[in-house]
Each structure stands twice: as structure tokens, then as C-alpha cells.
């Protein structure tokens, strides 16, 4: 479930990246972040399948719910990381302009 949620996040951000008009939103950051994690969880899933066989695809409801929570929080964390990088790099100069405006107000 975590892998599935992360793959969906990676696909959505990749489509957004492909449709972008410029690079000012740094959409490549969440793309590589979620694809990297998805590929790593794929490796984990391969070992899980090798160990459990078909049972790997039939998890308990409680386990699935916990994995879904984990997947959603992973997506949230990845997006927070993206936002922090976006605000620090500030490619559109929005943060700088806002700070300058605040300084001028005083």
C-alpha cells in the first residue's frame, strides 16, 4: 500500500512536471524523491513476494490501514521537503520580495 501510494504520487508529479511551463516550481524535486522511494520499495516488495508468495498481495486489513497511513505521511513528508527546497531556492523571488516589502514597511 505504501508503494502504491508513493507510485501514484510519483506519477502525478511527473505529469505535472511534463506539463509545466517553466521550472520555477522545481517540480523535478518531488518527482525524483517519489520515484527514488518507489523504486526502493519495489526492491523491498520483490523480497516480500519471494518470502510470502501470493499471500504478499493479501495483507490483513489492519496492516493495510497502517501501510496506507504510512504512505500518506510519506507523501506529506516528501511534499514538505519539496516546499522547503522551493522556499529556500526561491526561483520566482517571491520570498525575497515579500521579505523586502516587510523590511520597507518598518
Amino acid at each position: 500500500m505504501t508503494l502504491l501510494i508513493c507510485v501514484f504520487a510519483a506519477i502525478i508529479f511527473t505529469i505535472k512536471w511534463y506539463r509545466r511551463k517553466d521550472d520555477s516550481m522545481l517540480l523535478g524535486v518531488p518527482c525524483v524523491c517519489f520515484w527514488g522511494a518507489s523504486l526502493m520499495w519495489l526492491g523491498d516488495a520483490i523480497f516480500g513476494y519471494a518470502e510470502d508468495g501470493a499471500a504478499f498481495f493479501e495483507p490483513e486489513a489492519a496492516e493495510m490501514l497502517n501501510d496506507a497511513f504510512l504512505g500518506l505521511s510519506v507523501v506529506a513528508l516528501g511534499m514538505i521537503l519539496w516546499l522547503v527546497i522551493l522556499l529556500v531556492k526561491d526561483p520566482r523571488g517571491v520570498v525575497k520580495a515579500s521579505l523586502r516589502k516587510k523590511a520597507e514597511e518598518k
Partner: peptide, 14 residues
């Protein structure tokens, strides 16, 4: 490097 750092960061959280 970005693929590896991003993935390792999220897996660390897991």
C-alpha cells in the same frame, strides 16, 4: 544522487 537521496530520506522515515 537525487533519486538516491530522496528515496533514502523517505525510507529513513519509514
Amino acid at each position: 544522487a537525487s533519486l538516491l537521496w530522496g528515496g533514502a530520506f523517505l525510507l529513513c522515515y519509514e
